Computed example of a mutant assay.
Amino acid sequence: MGCMIMFKYNTKVSPANPNSKTLRSSIPKEIAKLLKVKAGDSIEWNVDVIDNNTFQITVTKKE
């Protein structure tokens, strides 16, 4: 049976650019290291909606 480890990080969200509604946030370096991602890599976001205020988000590196 595997061991589950929980990490908790806080980041700020900012506009991607002044003319867009897209938002941007940084990946904490510890998470980037776990995902083995570097600049230019793609990541995939999978979002499961649990209820109106709860989501489970899974982030994986796209190969």
Rank of each mutant, 00 (worst) to 15 (best):
17 N>P: 00
17 N>Y: 11
16 A>D: 14
36 K>W: 03
35 L>C: 02
5 I>G: 06
41 D>T: 00
54 T>Q: 11
7 F>R: 09
14 S>A: 08
51 D>R: 02
27 I>A: 05
16 A>C: 11
45 W>E: 00
27 I>Q: 05
26 S>Q: 10
62 K>L: 14
5 I>V: 15
49 V>L: 11
24 R>M: 13
34 L>E: 08
58 T>I: 12
56 Q>D: 08
51 D>L: 03
19 N>C: 02
55 F>S: 11
21 K>W: 04
28 P>A: 02
46 N>F: 08
39 A>K: 15
9 Y>T: 08
56 Q>W: 02
61 K>G: 05
50 I>K: 07
27 I>V: 15
11 T>G: 04
61 K>I: 07
53 N>A: 09
46 N>I: 03
56 Q>S: 07
12 K>D: 09
16 A>F: 10
10 N>K: 14
1 M>P: 04
23 L>A: 12
6 M>V: 11
43 I>E: 10
60 T>S: 13
2 G>E: 15
36 K>D: 12
27 I>G: 04
34 L>A: 02
28 P>T: 02
16 A>Y: 15
51 D>P: 05
59 V>R: 03
50 I>Y: 03
38 K>E: 09
8 K>V: 12
46 N>V: 10
26 S>D: 08
1 M>W: 05
13 V>T: 09
36 K>I: 04
27 I>P: 00
12 K>Q: 10
3 C>R: 09
48 D>V: 09
38 K>H: 02
3 C>E: 06
17 N>F: 15
20 S>A: 04
52 N>H: 05
61 K>Q: 11
61 K>S: 04
37 V>A: 01
11 T>F: 01
19 N>H: 13
8 K>Y: 05
15 P>L: 14
6 M>Y: 10
5 I>D: 01
63 E>Y: 11
54 T>R: 12
42 S>L: 10
21 K>S: 15
18 P>R: 14
14 S>I: 07
4 M>L: 15
50 I>Q: 08
15 P>A: 07
42 S>H: 04
25 S>R: 00
2 G>Q: 10
23 L>N: 02
3 C>H: 08
8 K>N: 10
50 I>H: 01
11 T>K: 05
61 K>V: 07
12 K>V: 05
4 M>Q: 14
56 Q>V: 06
38 K>L: 01
20 S>N: 07
22 T>L: 11
45 W>R: 07
32 A>V: 01
46 N>R: 03
21 K>L: 11
52 N>Y: 11
42 S>Y: 12
60 T>I: 14
2 G>I: 11
3 C>M: 15
53 N>W: 06
42 S>F: 12
19 N>W: 11
58 T>E: 08
39 A>W: 00
42 S>W: 06
54 T>I: 07
45 W>D: 02
9 Y>H: 15
19 N>L: 06
37 V>G: 01
63 E>R: 09
57 I>D: 02
44 E>I: 15
23 L>V: 15
45 W>Y: 07
62 K>T: 10
52 N>D: 14
43 I>H: 01
20 S>E: 06
57 I>S: 03
43 I>K: 04
5 I>L: 15
52 N>W: 04
53 N>H: 06
6 M>P: 00
31 I>F: 02
9 Y>D: 14
13 V>W: 00
35 L>Q: 00
7 F>L: 13
40 G>N: 01
22 T>G: 08
42 S>I: 05
26 S>F: 07
31 I>P: 01
37 V>W: 02
34 L>M: 06
54 T>F: 09
37 V>R: 00
28 P>M: 00
56 Q>T: 06
41 D>M: 02
57 I>T: 09
